[in-house]
Amino acid sequence: MGNTGRLLRTWAMLMSLSLAFAIVADATRPTRLSHVALLLVGVVAVLKARLVLADYLGLRATPTALAGFSTAVVAIIALVVLSFEFPVSLFARQ
């Protein structure tokens, strides 16, 4: 039953993080996010991805693979979050 217990815990954490997501990103209202909110959205996404990698995909047993996939996810999310720090075009001549 240990495995089922852990999976249940993982699922509960994923669901609460998703709820946190909704609140942080203020899912229902179309406003620009603050720097802190952008960062939090990124962190929550990384945490969720890591839980899926470790427990759903079972990479907890292979730390190297877990580290590799996590790094890739972190890099992608970090770059996208960073890009949202710029509210105006970086390319168009003003």
């Binding site: 990103a25 952008l38 959205v41 759903y56 999310i77 979050v81």
Partner: peptide, 13 residues
Amino acid sequence: LVWIVIFPCLYLL
């Protein structure tokens, strides 16, 4: 996993 990554990028940020 893919959804967890694309959802915040496309919808929330």
